[in-house]
């Protein structure tokens, strides 16, 4: 197991994702002799997990069952322990494409936060790229180093515990892409530019507030960035659901002579049953949804 390479069997030391149903997942460190409590009972690692195939159904002690999944950055985003507000998959997907990330890209990121985006970046730039991630909170920086090691992506990432606005990214002229998720991104634009390759690259700044966006855009333009674009992307979920809708009875229609013959042709026998109703399979929106995550501002650094 690694976050950048699939394997078929669960092994001692892996991080596996236990799927408890309905987008409820939890990450489990697989260890000989260890046990994990779920609401369906205990999972015994030695017998239930190790040497089983990823994707297997595991019956817990209470008889309920769960599926054990191979970790992916997307599952990790749902399962990870929150130490900060995190970026979710919809924004991550947009960031990845608009920053033009691909295997071999060198990326600078700040702040690291809980590492949700970091894992997705690492997946995309492996096996030849590198991520320089800067986090000013010491415990968070230490924790994420540990996670990168457990997820076997530590060879692709350098974590620096410093303040990007003061000290920059710790590298110069190497990055193809920069990602900023900090309270005052405009203060880091200069450092971002310095970290980027001479021939240019892409930058993204994520900010929840429009005032932040405004100042960042101004700073970007002043520093010679081009193609400054701000956008917002939201996920809309469509829940599949069968619904039955009643049909009104208008009574017999004596005015229309052909109606009786038409009714025989068109109406299926079931619809004629009283009370008439129609069963359809459709989707409904959730009652509430995240209506705002943050504004994504993208820009291109031209050759300098």
């Amino acid at each position: 197991m690694s976050f950048i390479e699939y394997s078929d069997l669960i092994q001692d030391g892996d991080v596996a994702i236990v799927h408890l149903g309905h987008n409820s997942v939890t990450a489990v460190k697989v260890q000989h002799g260890a046990q994990t409590q779920t609401r369906f009972g205990v999972i015994r690692h030695s017998t239930d997990l190790i040497s089983q195939r990823y994707g297997s159904k595991v019956t817990c002690s209470k008889g309920g069952w769960v599926h054990v999944l191979h970790p992916t950055p997307e599952l990790w985003t749902v399962a990870l322990p929150h130490r900060t507000q995190i970026l979710y998959t919809t924004d991550i997907a947009m960031v990845t494409m608009m920053l033009e990330l691909k295997p071999g890209s060198v990326v600078c990121e700040s702040g690291t936060g809980s590492g949700s985006l970091s894992h997705a970046i690492l997946r995309t730039i492996a096996p030849t790229g590198h991520l320089h991630t800067v986090e000013f909170h010491q415990q968070r920086a230490e924790k994420v180093v540990e996670e990168f090691k457990e997820h076997r992506v530590d060879h692709l990432v350098t974590v620096r515990n410093q303040d990007v606005c003061k000290d920059g990214f710790g590298v110069t002229g190497v990055a193809d892409a920069i990602f900023l998720d900090i309270p005052s991104p405009w203060e880091a634009v200069g450092h971002a530019k310095a970290a980027m390759k001479k021939h240019g690259g892409r930058l993204c700044s994520f900010s929840p507030c429009i005032e932040q966006v405004q100042r960042t855009c101004q700073a970007l333009t002043e520093r010679g960035f081009e193609e400054v674009r701000t956008l917002e992307v939201l996920l809309r979920v469509h829940n599949v659901r069968p619904v039955t809708l009643q049909l009104p009875d208008f009574g017999p229609d004596p005015g229309c002579p052909s109606s009786s013959s038409q009714a025989v042709e068109e109406a299926p026998p079931a619809a004629a049953a009283n009370p008439a109703s129609l069963k359809i399979k459709t989707t409904t929106p959730p009652r509430e949804m995240p209506g705002h995550t943050g504004y994504l501002t993208f820009a291109t650094k031209p050759r300098t």
């Binding site: 919809t90 405004q214 674009r229 701000t230 956008l231 917002e232 992307v233 996920l235 469509h238 599949v240």
Partner: peptide, 21 residues
């Protein structure tokens, strides 16, 4: 299969200018 989901994304671009965002 698990985690089945039907989704679409909503995308909006912004004009960002001083006092005219």
């Amino acid at each position: 299969t698990v985690n089945l989901m039907i989704t679409d994304t909503w995308l909006r671009h912004y004009q960002v200018l001083p006092d005219r965002t």
